[in-house]
Simulated scan of single mutants.
Amino acid sequence: MQCPVCTDKTLIMSERQGIEIDYCPGCRGVWLDRGELDKIIERNAAEQAPAVASRPVVPASAPPPQHAPRPQHDEHYRHKRKKSFFEELFD
């Protein structure tokens, strides 16, 4: 299939985590077939749900926890965050 934007490039099919993605190597555009966006949204929601459910419930009357301020630009304090489903999918 030809790229709708470039018109001279052929789309490349790639399967990532069970979802078929068509992308253009020229403009790096991504196209999904019917139902594939729904699959991506469902998987992302399922991935995010356990993180929300595991948060502790804090009563509204409890004072906020006191934390010591951390240096903002110190290289030792930078933590790598986990990639989201979307970042892994399009990586």
Rank of each mutant, 00 (worst) to 15 (best):
I12H: 12
V30W: 02
S54V: 01
V5G: 00
A51M: 11
W31H: 11
I12S: 12
I21Q: 06
Q17I: 10
S61M: 08
Q48N: 08
D8L: 11
C3Y: 09
L32V: 02
S61E: 11
Y77E: 00
R43K: 15
M1C: 04
H73E: 06
L37Y: 06
D22I: 01
P56N: 01
I40V: 14
V57D: 07
P25C: 00
H76L: 07
L32F: 14
D74W: 06
C6N: 09
E47G: 01
P56V: 02
K83T: 04
C27N: 08
K9F: 09
G26P: 01
P63I: 14
L11K: 07
D22M: 10
E47N: 09
P69A: 14
L11W: 07
I12R: 13
E47I: 04
R16N: 11
T10M: 03
K9Y: 10
E20Q: 11
T7D: 01
Q72F: 12
F90L: 15
D22Y: 14
V30A: 01
N44C: 10
S61K: 06
S54E: 09
E87R: 12
H76A: 09
E20M: 04
S61I: 13
P71W: 02
P63V: 11
T7V: 10
E47S: 13
R34P: 03
E87L: 09
Q17R: 12
P69M: 12
G18S: 00
K83Q: 12
Q2R: 13
R16V: 15
K9H: 11
P25K: 09
V52H: 08
I21A: 10
L32E: 01
V30G: 00
C27K: 05
E20T: 15
V58F: 01
P50K: 05
E87Q: 15
G18T: 04
F85Y: 15
H67W: 15
P4L: 11
D22A: 15
A49M: 12
A49K: 14
R43S: 04
K80P: 00
L37T: 11
M13R: 13
A60T: 08
E88A: 07
K39N: 06
R28C: 05
H79E: 06
A49N: 02
I41A: 07
S84V: 02
A53S: 01
R34G: 00
E42N: 08
N44G: 06
P25A: 07
D8W: 05
G18Q: 10
E88L: 08
D74A: 08
A53L: 10
A49W: 09
R70A: 13
E15L: 04
F85M: 03
A49R: 14
E36N: 03
I40A: 06
P71L: 07
E20N: 08
S61D: 14
D33N: 11
R43Y: 05
L32I: 04
Q72D: 12
L11P: 06
F86T: 13
I21C: 02
L11N: 02
A51Q: 12
L89T: 11
S84I: 01
D74T: 01
I19F: 08
N44K: 01
C27Y: 11
H73N: 12
D74V: 05
D91P: 05
